[in-house]
């Protein structure tokens, strides 16, 4: 009885969180091959949404539709509606450059530019004209590195190459680089899969802190990671969205049998 009541209360609370991005009947085709089948998924503001599922289930594909990174793949076609703050992001009037400035992305493998740490972080603000003077730019760089928890480690070597950092530092540099553009949403595509457990812990901690200012969507292969960092979880299987739910509920009492099986490690 009480459990049901708290659950209901939680549901209500979650439902009051405004929706940042909405996907409605999203399907993605790579040439003739269909990768996603009518996915309906909402991303709530200042919430970490984790996308889980076995390899090849379409979770990364869905993530990449959110900032139109799929546009760069030849023969990729997206149908359905995806909105950001109510505006259709596939509207021809929408500039993809502007969209990506609002919806940033962190990739699976750390991919800093082979330039200095400073240049890595300042690149986004520079091309978007976010800083008018050198001092402003310096400030943006410092702030972004601090937000990514990297400032203390690199403040003395800002002008050394970003590729000289360790893997975990590189990934946090990439997060700082994404943060520097002041996006509203940050997409993370398995950001910890190439990192050791200590670096992973740092990045997860960082995701927690970033949630205050950003909406985060994260694709992960690790159930534990999804349970640790997210408030909402969506489970994909074979291009279909199986279940979307509060993370707590998902990992204790999922609605769908397939989710249960996957979480218990019966397939995947």
């Amino acid at each position: 009885m009480t459990e049901a009541a708290t659950e209901e209360a939680l549901e209500k609370k979650m439902n009051t969180v405004p929706l940042k991005m909405v996907g409605k009947d999203v399907s993605v085709y790579y040439g003739d091959k269909r990768a996603l089948y009518d996915v309906n998924l909402n991303v709530r503001e200042n919430t970490v949404t984790a996308l889980i599922g076995p390899s090849g289930c379409g979770k990364s594909t869905f993530l990449r539709t959110l900032n139109r990174m799929n546009d760069t793949i030849d023969g990729c076609r997206v149908t359905g509606l995806i909105t950001l703050d109510g505006g259709d992001i596939y509207d021809p009037a929408i500039d993809v450059v502007e969209l990506r400035a609002r919806v940033g992305m962190v990739f699976q493998k750390p991919n800093p530019f082979p330039k200095s740490i400073y240049e890595n972080v300042s690149y986004g603000p520079r091309i978007h004209g976010l800083a008018r003077t050198k001092a402003e730019l310096d400030q943006v760089v410092e702030q972004s590195l601090q937000r990514a928890g990297l400032w203390n480690e690199v403040k003395d070597r800002l002008h050394e190459s970003g590729t000289g950092l360790s893997g975990g530092q590189q990934q946090r540099l990439c997060i700082a680089r994404a943060v520097a553009v002041s996006p509203e949403v940050i997409l993370m595509d398995e950001p910890c899969s190439a990192l050791d457990p200590i670096a992973t812990a740092k990045v997860e901690e960082l995701i927690h802190e970033l949630r205050a200012n950003f909406t985060i969507v994260i694709v992960t292969h690790s159930m534990q990671q999804a349970a640790r960092v997210s408030q909402r979880t969506a489970m994909f299987h074979l291009g279909n969205l199986v279940e979307e739910n509060d993370t707590d509920k998902m990992f204790t009492n999922p609605d769908d049998q397939r989710t249960q099986d996957y979480i218990m490690g019966r397939f995947g």
Binding site: T72, R100, G104, F107, N111, V181
Partner: peptide, 13 residues
């Protein structure tokens, strides 16, 4: 590497 292109495009370049 394509990752460099993705990185720049992902930043809105």
């Amino acid at each position: 590497p394509p990752s460099i292109r993705s990185a720049a495009l992902g930043l809105g370049a």
